[in-house]
Computed example of a mutant assay.
Amino acid sequence: MQPKSVQALLEDIRFLSEEHYATVQAVRSLVKQLVKPLSEEVKYGGILFSSGIQFGGVFAYKDHISVEFSRGAAIADKSGHLQGGGKLRRHIKLKTLTDIETTHLADYIPLALQAAQGAT
């Protein structure tokens, strides 16, 4: 079985929720603005982001969108929006499109890439 394409996953998300689709697309757009080069792949039910190394991803759930950071535990969380208590990963939950701004997601993206690069 071939892996699902990013476009196919986006179509599935849109079918389930226009708001989730808009939020996932806004997250993708933000990451594309902040990280170059950037590649995406569908894995684990979400879209993973890489720039020489995988550093995070975006996942749509029933009640929220989760932006995951592979080495999020290494990020200095001055704004206090990171969630999770695992050894490595952290995430930010987005319930609405405006949460992208209120959680200062743009500040976390470059930090997530730096944290992943520092782990190699």
Rank of each mutant, 00 (worst) to 15 (best):
D77S: 08
K95G: 01
R89M: 14
L88R: 11
G80P: 06
H81R: 08
L94G: 02
L94S: 03
K95V: 10
F69H: 04
R89P: 00
I92D: 00
I75W: 05
A74Q: 13
Q83T: 10
R89F: 06
I75L: 07
R71T: 05
S79I: 08
S79L: 13
L82C: 02
S66T: 11
V67W: 01
L88K: 13
S79H: 14
L94R: 02
H91Q: 12
I75R: 00
K93M: 07
R71L: 09
S70T: 15
L88P: 00
R71Y: 14
A73T: 05
A76Y: 11
Q83N: 10
E68F: 12
R90F: 01
G72T: 02
D77N: 08
D77L: 05
A76C: 09
H91A: 09
G86R: 06
G72D: 03
K78S: 14
L88G: 04
R90V: 02
I75Y: 04
K93F: 00
G85K: 15
L82K: 02
K87H: 10
Q83G: 11
G84C: 05
G80S: 06
Q83H: 09
S66A: 15
G85T: 15
H91W: 08
I92S: 00
A74M: 11
S66H: 02
K93W: 03
V67F: 03
A76W: 09
L88M: 13
I75P: 04
H81T: 03
S66L: 05
F69G: 02
L94C: 05
H81V: 08
L82Y: 04
A73H: 11
L88H: 14
A76Q: 14
L88W: 13
F69I: 00
G84F: 04
V67N: 02
I75D: 06
K93P: 00
I75Q: 06
S66I: 02
S70W: 11
A73D: 09
V67H: 01
G86D: 12
S70Q: 12
R89W: 06
Q83I: 06
R90Y: 04
S70M: 14
K78F: 11
A73W: 03
G72I: 00
S70V: 15
K95D: 08
D77W: 06
F69M: 14
A73E: 12
G80T: 09
S66W: 03
L82Q: 01
S79E: 13
R89H: 11
H81W: 12
V67G: 00
A74D: 15
L94P: 02
G84I: 05
G80F: 05
A73G: 09
H81M: 10
Q83A: 14
G80D: 07
S79C: 08
G85Y: 07
D77H: 09
G80Y: 07
R89S: 10
L88I: 04
H91V: 08
A76H: 13
I92K: 00
D77T: 07
H91C: 10
S66M: 09
L88Y: 15
L94K: 02
L82A: 01
G86S: 14
D77I: 08
G80M: 06
G80V: 06
K87N: 10
L94Y: 03
A76P: 10
G86P: 06
